[in-house]
Nucleic acid binder design. Structure first.
Lengths: 113, 113
DNA sequence: TCTATATATTAAAGTATTGGAATATATTGT
DNA sequence: ACAATATATTCCAATACTTTAATATATAGA
């Protein structure tokens, strides 16, 4: 299992609108840099920076096809996370039942709200 | 479905070792602030700051029990993400088959690696 | 009401992330 | 070898995040 630090790192690597969009598009299939530049609408150097970061964290990789770099998903956790982010959750988790026991013990006072 | 920006925001809210640990512990049950201070081993004000951030993004909430604040998970996406982060993935995603078609078209040159 | 306990807030300082601009590198076709 | 295309890198200013330290607030019990 990933260390706590690696888990945090991974979430931060994914946690940028441009990078989430890149990963979502890569889920549909391989894309070269100019494809990505096309749907992101940001500068080419900035696209490269985001791709480079994602690759640094092992989320994606690429191979050369002529002079194109074809990027694809590499870390299998990515599709799982992307799917969950798109999921619709109808309601909040149920609040815990009255007066659960914390380490300090169930406080004898009355619940305020 | 959450907007792209909200999805990024959420991942960044979770993406810190202390906050991941907090959420993991809250999955086991309600915890008050001093419980959390106990297992994180960081200062009480810093714990409060992390809790406040998680609450600002709707990930958690609390109720009062006497003078204790009992924190619990609120956003149902949290357990799903925490579970995935702990999952063991044995191998990388398979590299795409040779010469897939990108928007620019399948380049006629030879693959370099 | 006074005190102790539990938690929150604020400010300041340090650190990391981001995007723009300019430039560099690599590969193909000529 | 040269020009054109595709992508990467570097540097920098701006912004955002994190932590520490000090202080503030709220509640319960005496």
């Amino acid at each position: 299992m990933r260390s706590l630090d690696k888990r945090a790192e991974l979430l931060r690597a994914i946690g940028h609108p441009a990078r989430i969009k890149i990963l979502e598009e890569l889920m549909k299939g391989v894309k070269c840099v100019s494809d990505i530049e096309g749907f992101l609408g940001i500068s080419q150097p900035n696209v490269s920076q985001h791709l480079s970061l994602l690759r640094r964290y092992g989320a994606i990789d690429y191979y050369m096809d002529g002079r194109l770099k074809c990027y694809f998903l590499r870390d299998p956790i990515i599709p799982d996370i992307i799917k969950i982010l798109k999921k619709d959750y109808i309601k909040e988790l149920p609040a815990p039942a009255c007066c659960p026991v914390t380490k300090k013990g169930k406080y004898p006072g009355t619940r305020k709200h």
